[in-house]
């Protein structure tokens, strides 16, 4: 029996594509693997093909819903990296849902390879949604926060 490994990168790319295209479902198949990423169920299925090998493994889809990505107030990741919701471990978060922010205010940090980048509010408004969790890896262009 061949061992199936989870290709999280492939799933992430498919989920990002899902967000960008507005599709509900993408299925990608190679000789050894079939990955289906569907939006409604908010899970990604990785199944070995032939399906007899192992039970499907379900992991949470990392992408946010496409409607958030298309929201005019969506603030998107300017670089790949890991999200930090507070300036230092243990300190208060930069923002909370419902809070008012002013243009230029820091919303969160993204770290990639020891490069720290503050993501700033492009305009003033109210935080309608926070689409990422502390320590979560994000891809370029992934929606992070919605400001209304």
């Amino acid at each position: 029996m061949t061992k199936t490994s989870i290709d999280s990168e492939a799933i992430r790319q498919l989920a990002t594509l899902l967000g960008e295209t507005g599709l509900n479902e993408i299925e990608y198949e190679t000789e050894s693997l079939r990955i289906r990423v569907a939006k409604g169920a908010a899970v990604a299925h990785v199944a070995a093909a032939p399906a007899a090998a192992a039970a499907p493994v379900a992991v949470a889809a990392p992408a946010a819903p496409a409607d958030a990505a298309r929201h005019p107030g969506a603030v998107k990741a300017p670089m790949v990296g890991v999200v930090y919701m507070s300036p230092e471990p243990g300190s208060a978060a930069f923002i909370t849902v419902g809070a008012s922010v002013t243009e230029g205010q820091t919303l969160l940090l993204i770290e990639a390879m020891k490069t720290f980048n503050p993501v700033k509010a492009p305009r003033s408004g109210k935080i309608a949604a926070i689409l990422v969790d502390d320590s979560q890896p994000v891809e370029y262009g992934e929606p992070l926060v919605v400001i209304e």
């Binding site: 490994s5 989870i6 290709d7 999280s8 990168e9 790949v80 990296g81 890991v82 770290e111 990639a112 390879m113 020891k114 890896p137």
Partner: peptide
């Protein structure tokens, strides 16, 4: 190509960014 550290674990390839 981004500078992420690529590890091969028994669960597959892992990409570390921080």
């Amino acid at each position: 190509a981004d500078g992420a550290l690529v590890l091969q674990s028994n669960m597959g390839r892992i990409r570390i960014m921080a």
